[in-house]
Design a protein around this nucleic acid. Structure first.
Lengths: 334, 334
DNA sequence: GCAGCAGAAGTAAGCGCTTACCTGTATAAA
DNA sequence: TTTATACAGGTAAGCGCTTACTTCTGCTGC
């Protein structure tokens, strides 16, 4: 029913080796034969089987993308970029939303191995450097958005430190002194870097950021809101908060409104990521923009390099962030 | 380097057929042997090659999902659901953002065929019923969110008609009479159904919806905003608008604010989809909710049924929508 | 006029599995 | 004891490709 290389060969009166060669542009084939064969492939709507060719030890032209959640706009955007760049280069990409759960990660990894994907892009928290090394021993891996200290894996990250710093400087320039930070788990390097940059700018300005001012949240709107509600209730509430992603920022914004605080007159909010959410709230969010498209595309490029080349130059790409000033930040109006 | 079925067989002192049988739970194998073999697979970290088994004429355990854009929250949500259900059933899913461009659709389809995916879920506009039939001739297809009149393909849709009707009834109950509709291309059935439901409710109430009140937009915030700006400028502007998705609704909301109109006091907005965007705007949007998770999961179920069974019962699933009332709708305040 | 060679094509051995079919053995039926 | 029979397992033929190697022509160059 479906044409195979044999059908093409028979129809063209040549051997399957010849057909294979014209498909892959290898070996010496006369221009004449090449045309004939191509014409027949066209006529029979022949689609070479990636499956079969993969079995011969080559590539499957498939890569896996592990991320926490596809329905999170940040990751959706990155995923879109990975997909685009991948397809552009002839690769399919298999998406895996892990919810950051070890069990799911295990399952997906196993599935991807069975599918013999050519490599994996990890944008999700995976256990130890140890595990990662083991994984990388099995197949090429590129890590997005996180440094894995001792793993020496190719990585693409945003300039988290610089982003944190820029956020602080912006807020300082507006006269803010009492600030809070809403962070996801500080176990991941990107969060720590954002915090480090933020704190450094504050200290350089001669102020301090106490540990109490750091709130750890789940990566969800409602958790941001819940925790912000508590924080904003106090009389020594901050005049500005820096959120480590848009979801948290939305939560904080909602809490502020519920508490009757006007943004930015009484509370300034700086977010991180700059997904579509930042444009849609009211006021729209000042945010440290991550180059999501760039991140995704770079990860693919790195991965394919890894897949293709022997010399394994473990690259680490850091992409610049950019502070996008919108209306959620301003001077305090007494 | 990577263990194969031969390695397992050798190690266990059995034939590869036996190993294959224990892997797939077929044939008669003594409990004892089974355990032995399993233990060895465990020890050698054996991962059977889906590639190889696919070649034997079975499944690749991969399905393709074609959608317009992964970074659109609506589709991201559906994609997440498809992915979840798919993985749950042992399938990988390959995402393809088509931007609704024929050229991209073609490329993806060809890629998916070469990858020999077991089936395809189509959530994107594809040309004619003709093309679809041809595609379905090549492999199982399930269509999401659209009826394809003469194709007789398994389909999962939301109750668009009911959603449109509910939107109108809500607005009518609030006293609105001059209403506009912001729609994506009316060439797709779901848009037409929403419109039909909306119009029907209006007519049943004894009013009419003129063609001038129907604005066709691209599926983007800025296009919604641009067109809304023009519409809201007139003195005979509507008091309520019904948008066919959240992106358009956000655009309309932004335009309203720019025009100095307060929502809902001077303009009510009902959206469709109920993605995260609807919760995040200010005011949050009253919206006809689509059961995105349910849609995605059902599509997978339908597809796997299609893949597995001979008798081909072409199902058509219509899932209920639900009006979620938030603060973007209300009575006109003179 | 012939060795040497490059160009063009074919041969056949796998890649890692599944499966139809065959074999050998212990048990039940005759 | 002989024969049928279910069990447990093995044999080997592919699935649709790639590729190292071989073969056959027709030229070059001396």
């Amino acid at each position: 029913m479906k044409a195979t290389i044999y059908d093409i060969a028979r129809e063209a009166g040549v051997s399957i080796a010849t057909v294979s060669k014209v498909i892959n542009g290898k070996g010496k084939i006369s221009e004449e034969r090449r045309r004939e064969v191509m014409a027949i492939m066209e006529r029979l709507q022949y689609q070479p089987s990636v499956i079969a060719s993969a079995l011969t030890g080559k590539h499957t032209y498939t890569i896996g993308l592990l991320l926490p959640d596809l329905s999170n706009p940040f990751f959706a955007e990155v995923a879109r970029a990975v997909e685009d760049r991948g397809h552009q280069l002839g690769y399919s990409v298999v998406m895996c939303s892990t919810d950051n759960k070890d069990e799911r990660i295990e399952r997906y990894l196993s599935l991807l191995k069975q599918q013999r994907v050519d490599g994996i892009i990890l944008a999700t928290g995976i256990g130890s450097a140890e595990q990662l090394k083991k994984l990388n021993h099995a197949m090429p891996v590129v890590v997005i958005g996180r440094e894995v200290p001792e793993s020496n894996l190719p990585t693409v990250v945003a300039d988290d430190w610089g982003g944190g710093k820029a956020a602080a400087e912006h807020l300082l320039a507006l006269g803010h002194r009492r600030m809070a930070v809403f962070a996801e788990r500080l176990s991941i390097t990107s969060s720590r870097e954002r915090l480090r940059g933020f704190r450094q700018a504050i200290e350089e300005a001669g102020f301090t950021l106490t540990d109490e001012a750091i709130v750890i949240c789940d990566d969800r709107i409602d958790d941001g809101r819940r925790q912000a509600s508590a924080l904003l209730r106090g009389s020594d509430r901050p005049t500005a908060v820096f959120c480590f992603n848009d979801l948290l920022a939305v939560g904080v914004l909602q809490a502020a409104k519920e508490a009757g605080l006007s943004v930015p007159a009484q509370l300034s909010i700086v977010s991180f990521d700059n997904t579509i959410l930042a444009e849609v709230t009211d006021p729209p969010l000042t945010a440290v923009a991550q180059p999501m498209t760039h991140i995704g595309a770079s990860a693919v490029d790195l991965l394919l390099e890894e897949i293709g080349s022997k010399p394994k130059i473990k690259a680490r790409i850091a992409l610049p962030t950019e502070l996008v000033i919108r209306r959620s930040t301003g001077r305090i109006v007494e």
